[in-house]
């Protein structure tokens, strides 16, 4: 069961909401009703975290002149939008934003059943020479970021690629680390759901576990 959760880490972010994803994972076999949810970050805490992340991103890029943000579908795209808005309000600079769906670069396509839906990839600027910061909601196994790095390389050669995540929940399967982290969570065997209002109707980071 535990392994299964870990393996689904990439696909989890492609569901309409994290909860429906669990419903789709038949391994949970109907013990849906006994799920236990605990809020790690509420709306205010997320706002605070994003504020800090946006500052650190500008720091990392040495200003906004060469900075670009690329969010990973789905919730990373919304988070990148918010970070860009914060930077714009504070620095008065319009940071170029892109969106990436990493499905076509996944390393587990051969083993999953019906094909995952492919989301939009849109990088409407030349990334050569820029400092591109990848934005995502959760950093877990590192496989999504691996795919994102490969995909980004097919779009050009940035002078620097950074990684900013709202939640780092550890348990990496690849040697990948984030430059900027909103909140670190130690939650082996549990699920971490990030909800954003644009997609899920509210902002929250929740820890979900199956109670005995």
């Amino acid at each position: 069961m535990r392994v299964c959760i870990a393996r689904r880490s990439i696909s989890q972010r492609h569901g309409v909401s994290a909860l429906t994803d669990v419903a789709a994972a038949s391994n949970f076999r109907g013990d849906m009703g006994s799920m236990h949810t605990r809020t790690l970050l509420d709306s205010a805490a997320i706002a605070k975290a994003l504020e800090r992340i946006s500052r650190e991103i500008v720091e990392l890029a040495g200003g906004t002149e060469h900075l670009a943000l690329v969010g990973i579908q789905r919730r990373g795209v919304e988070l990148a939008e918010r970070v860009a808005k914060l930077i714009s309000q504070r620095e008065g600079a319009d940071v170029p934003r892109g969106a990436m769906d990493i499905t076509l670069y996944r390393d587990d396509l051969q083993t999953v059943g019906p094909r995952p839906i492919v989301g939009e990839t849109r990088i409407p600027f030349d990334i050569d020479g820029l400092c591109v910061v990848i934005v995502d909601d959760v950093l877990y196994t590192g496989r999504t970021v691996r795919a994102a790095l490969d995909q980004l390389a097919d779009f050009g050669r940035p002078c620097r690629i950074g990684l900013a995540v709202l939640v780092d929940r550890g348990e990496r399967e690849l040697p990948i680390q984030a430059d900027i982290i909103g909140e670190s969570v130690n939650a082996p065997g549990k699920r971490v759901d990030v909800l954003v209002s644009e997609v899920d109707g509210r902002d929250a980071v929740e820890l979900v576990e199956a109670s005995e």
């Binding site: 076509l104 670069y105 094909r115 492919v118 939009e120 097919d154 779009f155």
Partner: peptide, 20 residues
């Protein structure tokens, strides 16, 4: 038809290739 949409973008890239 919906799946074809994102693939239109791949053909517009400088490097028109994904490892799928």
């Amino acid at each position: 038809l919906d799946t074809a949409e994102p693939f239109k973008e791949v053909s517009e890239r400088a490097i028109k290739k994904v490892p799928t």
